[in-house]
């Protein structure tokens, strides 16, 4: 597994590189702005790019724009965006169309080393990792109507599902059996009128599309 890191803060750039190295992930390049990221991606063709959203020169959303370019040019390259705050539109932009291997997390999450590496592996394996805050923001937008029909437990499951977690992972997080989780998911899909799907990746898309519609 080969990774490029784009992050303008030296402290965090080196910290991230160290973190990935301890997890036996090869960091092939570290850069500090979006242009350098595109050059490094072209040169190294990494499996994953870990990208800060706010980078020079304007410190706005350079990282998101660079990530969209990466995904268009090299659809197989996974992208994990790190941000100071979450903006659901970024997530929606990134996940538009047939996508896999996308992550969008709050920067603070790197402090939770195990959780972070877990999300990072999920993205590298073609899965999805959305920050819980992104999901709750999407839920705030879509209040009322069909969502009110969900039980509190089903809402918890929906949230974890939208983060991109697998059934097993959801079962662990909520201390439930796998079959109970599967049953909740079925109920959710029926109540929200989403066509059921097996791939957890497509499932995230379906849920996000529902939340954003």
């Amino acid at each position: 597994m080969r990774v490029v890191i784009a992050e303008d803060s030296v402290l965090l750039r080196e910290g991230l590189a160290r973190l990935l190295q301890t997890a036996d992930i090869e960091v092939v390049d570290t850069v500090s702005d979006a242009d350098a990221l595109l050059r490094a991606a072209d040169e190294h063709r990494p499996d994953l790019a870990v990208v800060d959203v706010r980078m020079p020169p304007d410190y706005t959303d350079e990282g998101v724009r660079a990530a969209l370019v990466l995904r268009r040019q090299w659809p197989d390259m996974a992208v994990l965006l790190l941000s100071q705050y979450v903006e659901e539109r970024y997530a929606v932009d990134l996940l538009t169309g047939e996508t896999s291997g996308v992550g969008y997390l709050l920067k603070d999450r790197v402090a939770d080393v195990t959780e972070f590496l877990d999300a990072l592996h999920r993205v590298m394996d073609g899965g999805t990792a959305l920050d819980p805050e992104v999901v709750s923001q999407l839920l705030v937008r879509r209040q009322g109507d069909p969502l009110d029909r969900l039980t509190p437990r089903e809402r918890d499951v929906l949230g974890l599902m939208a983060e991109g977690r697998s059934n097993t992972n959801i079962a662990q997080a909520l201390v439930l059996s796998d079959s109970a989780v599967a049953k909740h998911i079925n109920n959710i899909f029926t109540k929200l009128d989403i066509p059921p799907t097996d791939s957890s990746n497509r499932r995230v898309l379906a849920v996000l599309q529902f939340l954003h519609s």
């Binding site: 803060s9 402290l11 965090l12 910290g15 991230l16 160290r18 973190l19 301890t22 100071q84 920067k107 603070d108 790197v110 402090a111 939770d112 080393v113 195990t114």
Partner: peptide, 16 residues
């Protein structure tokens, strides 16, 4: 914030 994030990350690495 950067420093604290880095500190927490390093402690996380140490812990793991």
């Amino acid at each position: 914030q950067q420093r604290l994030t880095s500190l927490a990350m390093n402690l996380g690495i140490a812990r793991a």
